[in-house]
Design a protein around this nucleic acid. Structure first.
Lengths: 120, 120
DNA sequence: GTCTATCGACTACAGTTGTAGTTTATAGGA
DNA sequence: TCCTATAAACTACAACTGTAGTCGATAGAC
């Protein structure tokens, strides 16, 4: 099951606030995306079809809930990405990120303590 | 300019061995992909059209050369990925990778020395 | 000299994705 | 009670992707 870029934006809203109706999702996206409510509804329908969301009836509308957790999705996506582009090697990815985005001192510190934890 | 998954496999071959003809690329991919030469040629044509490859005439055939470097592509792809999925934060990505693929002690060591270098 | 395998150029076609529009039912305000 | 805004369901449609096929030219085998 593949979540596309546009669909991911919708998932992000519902990960932050599960149980929204379509119109709420559209409102939440208003600031970032220039989508009509129609577009949002299409994306919601596709995500339900793909099993990424489930619906809960609420009067004559539906409330939407994620069926997969964000952490789960991220883990899967990160694995696929590193396999596809970096032949499964994580270290070069981090090196490229450092180059591309300039890791902040805070980032570096965070990574260091993460590595400390991993060593034990 | 977006390089798709199938196209990326072709690029990988030519990054490793620039200047191959279409039939050579097809042979190189034989072990991993189940593509006919026709499919490989379509992918090559699309990559040329996208500006990711350029051709060099060689008799009545073409030799293909990458127009973008692998390191460049990886940097861009890594940046886009971390923006789309991890809101631009690298540390959580590494945490997920550790979880998803289990970083080896060698990986951890590599990352540590990388961070050392970044600090200076 | 003729035939065949292969080349590049072009075409095909279904599935996915981004981005909506149309239709029909209905809840809630005037 | 009637109108309107909104809901779900369905349809649309072009661009992109994966995966080839056809056509006309030609280099090389015999």
């Amino acid at each position: 099951m593949q979540i596309t870029q546009a669909e991911l934006e919708v998932m992000k809203v519902l990960w932050r606030a599960p149980g929204l109706a379509a119109s709420d999702v559209a409102s939440a996206l208003e600031s970032e995306q220039d989508w009509t409510i129609k577009t949002v509804k299409t994306l919601l329908a596709r995500l339900v079809e793909k099993g990424a969301l489930k619906t809960e009836p609420d009067g004559r509308r539906f409330l939407y809930h994620p069926e997969i957790k964000e952490a789960e999705y991220r883990k899967r996506a990160a694995g696929q990405f590193v396999d596809r582009v970096f032949d499964g090697r994580a270290a070069p990815l981090v090196a490229h990120l450092a180059d591309a985005r300039g890791l902040s001192p805070a980032d570096i510190e965070e990574l260091e303590s993460l590595l400390e934890r991993l060593k034990s």
